[in-house]
Write a protein that binds this DNA or RNA. Structure first.
Lengths: 241, 241
DNA sequence: TAGATTGTTAATCGATTAACAATC
DNA sequence: TAGATTGTTAATCGATTAACAATC
């Protein structure tokens, strides 16, 4: 009897905590969302934004299927992982759905961010417009090359890599973009995680070894290029038949 | 009887054609290799190169599993899609396997390549070292901005986008890297495919609509960044529990 | 109301993992 | 030879697709 009382008290606490926030509730229930679904979310976000800009205000899974290329069934399954955003007989409200997916993607959260490596790629990313629709705020670049230190990319200063740990602590930086050569990447990653970095957007061609609670998203350009190479070769063999 | 004769003649021709090239034979048999497998190949290639550089000359699927993070079973399955590269009781010869995967990836094929869009990203890619281990030969950059036309990035000239169709035809260009704003990407892609482009490495945040025989490999940076954002948010909710 | 379309369960398909005979 | 490890078949797991009752 005592046990049942305890359980139901816990249950009331949980229900109260999440009543006003369905997304948190769903996350708490934590039927782990598969990476396959997660990686489709940004694409939904992009297509919904396009629709918004065309002043479309409602869309059915069937219509969306036609433009985005997933099956209608998959679209409904995907969205239902996060809540019932649609309405029978009507479909989905484009603006609402876009807003909800923004929230699910965490685009409303802000993160102080630094770019490590101020070479061509680091500079390209510093100027990258894609950041503006996210909560990542670029604060500075870091480089090892004395000739670069002190220079500015737009309104961002290039700082000495030697000072990065201090900077991260003092400026509450949570995210880093790694654009260094692969030889430097692991050491730097370990160093910055030590002082509070929670997530890394990694462009170095290496698989970083870090504590599992640190989120690493890789952009392995070589792997993408080699995949292109494979597919070209395959197509070529097909043509020769 | 006639039919059987015909069949067996065909068979002899096929066998003869492919006797010396197992990879072509396997491709011809065309049990379609899944994208999941294809996208793992560059990672095998990278880890095998690392092993080569460390003068390791043999490795078992079990050992490789430990460093690359796929199961030993998956490694053996993956490799066997392309041929029996291993030896019972011994494992795989690192140098041979690396060479074979290079061939499978088509890294030995050469492709004249152009970069379209000479902004930060286009320049970063023009300077990108990852190309050197592939067969993609960058010949020129193209831009719409008159102030950029005529400038040089390393030893590459920036040419007028207006002249691109002509250039592609005259220089036997087969591959293009698209680094333009998304508004320009579709039009340019259609234009260049018209004059012989076979493959596109697309950095514009749009899904290009092109004939199905054209190979498109997308690098959608925003989608990668938004995935990072999602995972950070998820981790945050976990921490708050 | 009738038609449309969702949310959700069940069926199918494909990819990963396990197991083991073959063999170096 | 005995031990190790592959290549490959079978079992499992997970993701996608189909179907349909609920309901706007």
């Amino acid at each position: 009897m005592n046990k049942i009382l305890t359980y139901s008290t816990d249950f009331v606490i949980i229900i109260t905590k999440f009543r006003k926030n369905k997304q948190k509730w769903v996350s708490f229930m934590a039927r782990q969302i598969s990476m396959a679904v997660i990686r489709r979310l940004p694409k939904y976000h992009r297509y919904l934004k396009d629709l918004l800009e065309k002043d479309v205000n409602r869309i059915s899974s069937k219509e969306l299927s036609k433009i985005i290329g997933f099956t209608a069934s998959q679209i409904r399954q995907d969205l239902n992982n996060f809540g019932g955003f649609g309405q029978q007989g009507y479909g989905y409200n484009v603006e609402e759905l876009h807003r909800e997916i923004s929230k699910i993607l965490g685009l409303t959260e802000e993160y102080n961010t630094v770019i490590i490596g101020a070479g061509n790629l680091g500079q390209a990313i510093a100027n990258y417009a894609g950041f503006k629709s996210s909560g990542f705020k670029i604060k500075a670049l870091f480089d090892i090359n004395p000739r670069m230190i002190g220079l500015r990319i737009r309104d961002l200063e290039i700082l000495d890599i030697e000072t990065i740990q201090e900077y991260i602590k003092e400026n509450d930086v949570k995210i880093a973009v790694i654009c260094t050569p692969k030889e430097k990447a692991q050491k730097i990653a370990s160093d910055i995680v030590e002082v509070g970095i929670k997530g890394i957007w990694n462009f170095a061609p290496i698989d970083l070894e870090l504590p599992e609670e640190v989120i690493v998203e890789n952009v392995h350009l070589t792997e993408s290029l080699f995949t292109l190479s494979y597919l070209l070769n395959e197509q070529k063999l097909k043509d020769e038949e």
